[in-house]
Amino acid sequence: MENETPPPSGNGSWSPRIIAFFCNWCTYTAADLAGVSRMKYAANTRTIRLMCSGRVDPQFVLEAFARGADGVLIGGCHPNDCHYGEGNYKMLRRFALLQRMLQDLGIGAERLRLEWISAAEGEKVKSVINDMVKKITVLGPLDLPGKCADWDREVTRLEPSVAPSQPPFESEVTHA
């Protein structure tokens, strides 16, 4: 496959883009606390607020990767602390499923991260994001949209050499 690593985007130096899904009650509030406490962390995450980590549809995660995210972070309340009782456990199950799926899809399970961060743990928001940015930077860009475009181009290029000239296989089946 050609073009395995896409050219670095933007101003030359590549830096990961991470979509974060934070639950309203714990992790989003913790991120607010990190802000109020003026903790400094990498600017690579973009957060989407949901009421509960249980609202994270596996499709959201896949969509984020498909649209060009290099990593996806999901933040929920600690086990037993869910504002809605058990939404975080529902997320945990989907997380296990997603990890297997992402591995099979060649995206890699390590690009998806689930963290329990309580409303008091602003410090943890900072450390988790910094750590994740570091790890995804090591993994390099995923660039699923770029890859898809490459595959499309490849198929288009190969198309003429496949279709017309080949004799049909029908002859082999006829004499039976």
């Binding site: 009421m51 509960c52 249980g54 609202r55 809605y84 939404g87 529902k90």
Partner: peptide, 10 residues
């Protein structure tokens, strides 16, 4: 309904 959205995601 309290609006957690767990059913929506599932």
């Amino acid at each position: 309904c309290k609006g957690c959205g767990t059913c929506v995601a599932a």
